[in-house]
Amino acid sequence: MERSTPTRLLTGSVALALSAVLLVLLPAAAEAAQCNQGSDRLSQADSDWWAVHGCQSSYYLWQYLAYHTDSGWPGSGNGFESACTKRMNYPKFWSASYLVNYGLSDNWDFCFHFSQSDYRPLAEGGSSNFHESNEYFAPENLSGGAFGAWYYDYAPGSDNNIHLGCPLFDKTLSVNANPASRAGDFMHESWHGYEDKWDWDINCNAGHRCKSGACTVNSCDYWHWHTISVYAPGQLYQNKTSGNPSHRPNQVQVEFLCDVNQYPAANVPASVRNAAKSDANTRAAQRFINGPGYKCGDPRPW
């Protein structure tokens, strides 16, 4: 979900006041609505993926910088000081990012895009071809029940903001409380940053188009068809299809999820691959005006 466009279209004091109001209200809401982190909220897929990597301090000490974790994480009760207690939010956050780094096989002739040269720079906080700098906030119950949100930050020199919703962390809230869907949301929200950077913003409903055509939800995108071979590693940010830009947030998310399902690293568990496939197909079926998008994988049950 992206809310920057309407405020950016305003000018002068109105925009300034509105941005200040947003910045004041959002953290207050977050503090009041922390996600439940009980051990009964850890999904099977999260547990299985954690078993693959375990506690890796060299990784999370890199991750908190690479993902520009907001300074509100420490002391917030989200596990920043307990980075290997897998039921807590910060461990779930870095574990999902570990899937982005090491969960894909980056197979040239088979996957849509590539881990190290595409998905990593898209998801991480640093500025790149994909976006200006983003920072990630500790998860919260977002208004509107959203999975995630990207906000433009008007303060000079500051990162733009990515907020993640509790349904990505608490298995009782959503099927998307798994590492693949959480990482998929990194792609989705970060792509709103891409649209902002290259001025492809749209905003009928939270950074997407209004319901029309084959789309059955409120926030819709166009699907930009492309073959596998047209995108070499590191080219995801380029415009290579009919109609620009070549991707929208939901499509990038679907393609990432499908790559996790179909071309995972050799140690990615079935529960993660299975969840990725279901999320990809759920999105592809209902979120595209000129859809459906590609069907990910065949329908054999196992």
Binding site: W62, R120, P121, G126, S128
Partner: peptide
């Protein structure tokens, strides 16, 4: 052919091909 997206025929920028990223190299593959 009717399924080609009909949006974005104007506006926006084509990203350059050599924008230097500000990324932190990942740790060794542990």
């Amino acid at each position: 052919p009717e399924l080609q997206p009909t949006e974005d025929q104007q506006g926006g920028a084509n990203p350059p091909k050599n924008d230097k990223p500000d990324l932190i190299p990942p740790p060794p593959l542990t």
